[in-house]
């Protein structure tokens, strides 16, 4: 700004000040809760409730982490990883078949089928209208509280978006590639999972990323579908700690801090993919 010298007008500087202040506030408001939570999680109980709050002059302790991990938190962590991996595998498997089918073939009822998928993208954003239907229906099928309950639901909720993202990847592969493969006699199945999947790796990775975030962060469905402690995912465990630990913010913030590590790691490395996936999925107009 300053280098522009004479062009440095009043309205221009006012605008840049407003934008800078907005951004400053957003950074504070986005980062501080996490830092404050992590800080609380490594303080002793007496330090946590010391007022005014101690900013730096406390002794770090891992007692809350030890306590939650001795209390079965690791199990919920592993459950969540299982739910994510199962949903990703199942979702990508169905997703690549459907994406390829939609992109390369004409068949009866193609349009209505495609609109069903498109309809399900925003439908699964409005998930609270679905919690009662899903619950009553899963209980009718006796699918409640099983190891496969959540993977089935998480796959269904994230599959429509996955199909859309993978389809945008398949579009970029020239049709000549499938023709060459079929002439070579490679079976269609081998072609889809051997060649096509390799060629649209970025789209598959973006779809996997969305399924991961959806499954890892989901809470309300798990809270109504899962009863047994052995099957609890991580978000449900945190919510139940809220009732169990009450005002003990040490273990609560320790659980919360641990639960965001996978999301933050994935996001830091694949952030660019997430951003492009987001925009591809929503404003392709």
């Amino acid at each position: 700004m300053r280098s522009k010298g004479l062009q440095f007008t009043f309205s221009g500087s006012l605008k840049s000040i407003i934008l800078f202040v907005t951004f400053g506030l957003v950074v504070i408001v986005n980062i501080v809760p996490i830092l404050w939570g992590v800080k609380t999680s490594i303080m002793s109980p007496s330090d946590i409730f010391f007022y005014p709050p101690k900013l730096f002059n406390f002794e770090a302790t891992f007692e809350h982490y030890i306590r939650i991990f001795n209390g079965g938190y690791l199990r919920t962590f592993l459950n969540s990883i299982f739910y994510c991996v199962a949903s990703i595998i199942f979702g990508l498997f169905l997703g690549i078949l459907a994406a390829y089918g939609f992109d390369r073939f004409l068949f009866r009822f193609k349009k209505p089928m495609f609109y069903l998928v498109v309809f399900c993208i925003p439908l699964s954003i409005g998930s609270s209208a679905l919690i009662i239907p899903n619950y009553l229906y899963m209980s009718e099928l006796s699918f409640l509280n099983e190891w496969y309950t959540l993977p089935i639901l998480y796959t269904a909720y994230n599959l429509p978006m996955a199909i859309w993202i993978i389809k945008s990847g398949v579009e970029t592969i020239p049709v000549e590639v499938d023709e060459a493969a079929t002439i070579d006699g490679a079976s269609r199945f081998y072609f889809i999972f051997g060649m096509l999947a390799v060629l649209c790796r970025p789209a598959l990775a973006a779809a996997a990323l969305f399924i991961f975030l959806g499954a890892w962060n989901e809470f309300i469905l798990s809270s109504i579908m899962i009863n047994s402690p052995d099957l609890r995912p991580v978000q449900l465990a945190i919510y139940q700690y809220l009732g169990f630990f009450g005002q003990e913010w040490g273990p609560l913030t320790a659980a919360a801090s641990t639960a965001i590590i996978p999301s933050i790691i994935v996001f830091t490395f694949l952030g660019r993919m997430l951003i492009s996936g987001l925009t591809a999925g929503s404003v392709k107009s």
Binding site: L94, L97, F107, K110, M113, L116, C120, L123, L130, A156
Partner: peptide, 18 residues
């Protein structure tokens, strides 16, 4: 073949969401 490829997803969405 297109219908065959698409139908698992469509069935799954219909059964679980619709």
């Amino acid at each position: 073949l297109g219908a065959i490829l698409v139908s698992p997803s469509i069935l799954f969405l219909a059964v679980i969401l619709i």
